[in-house]
Amino acid sequence: MILYGKGGHGGIPQKTIDPIVATSAVIQGIQTIVSRNLSPIDSAVVSIGTIEGGTANNVICE
């Protein structure tokens, strides 16, 4: 899955669409898949392999 946003300067986040925040919501949703859909007696694993969000200072990534 790839999430894209609209990058920009960290000082004006209201003009961006931050994909890190969206990714956080997806991660929380994924973590509830097991707890809300399977019996506590059953075992299951959900893994998230890699998250990349850029490395520039004071910049919200695209």
Rank of each mutant, 00 (worst) to 15 (best):
M1Q: 02
M1R: 11
I2D: 09
Y4K: 08
G5T: 09
G5H: 07
G5I: 01
G5K: 00
K6N: 12
G7Q: 04
G8C: 03
G8S: 05
G8H: 03
G8D: 02
H9M: 14
H9Y: 13
G10R: 11
G11K: 14
G11S: 14
I12K: 09
I12N: 12
I12H: 13
P13A: 03
Q14D: 14
Q14S: 12
T16L: 04
D18S: 04
P19S: 09
V21F: 14
V21Y: 11
A22G: 07
A22R: 11
S24I: 03
S24L: 08
A25T: 09
A25V: 15
A25F: 10
V26N: 01
V26C: 06
I27M: 08
Q28V: 13
Q28R: 02
I30E: 07
I30L: 15
Q31V: 09
Q31Y: 08
Q31T: 07
T32D: 10
T32I: 13
T32Y: 08
T32Q: 04
T32E: 14
T32M: 07
T32W: 07
I33Q: 13
V34E: 02
S35P: 01
S35I: 05
R36W: 05
N37D: 09
N37V: 03
L38W: 02
L38M: 15
L38Y: 08
S39G: 09
P40V: 13
P40I: 08
I41N: 12
I41V: 15
S43Y: 14
S43W: 04
A44G: 12
A44F: 05
V45Q: 15
V45G: 11
V45M: 15
V45A: 12
V45C: 05
V46K: 11
V46R: 03
V46D: 03
S47V: 07
I48G: 06
I48R: 03
I48K: 07
I48F: 08
G49P: 13
G49F: 02
G49M: 11
T50D: 10
E52N: 10
G53N: 00
G53F: 00
G53V: 00
G54M: 06
G54H: 00
G54Y: 00
G54T: 01
T55H: 02
A56S: 14
N58T: 08
N58C: 05
V59W: 02
I60K: 00
C61Y: 05
E62T: 09
E62G: 10
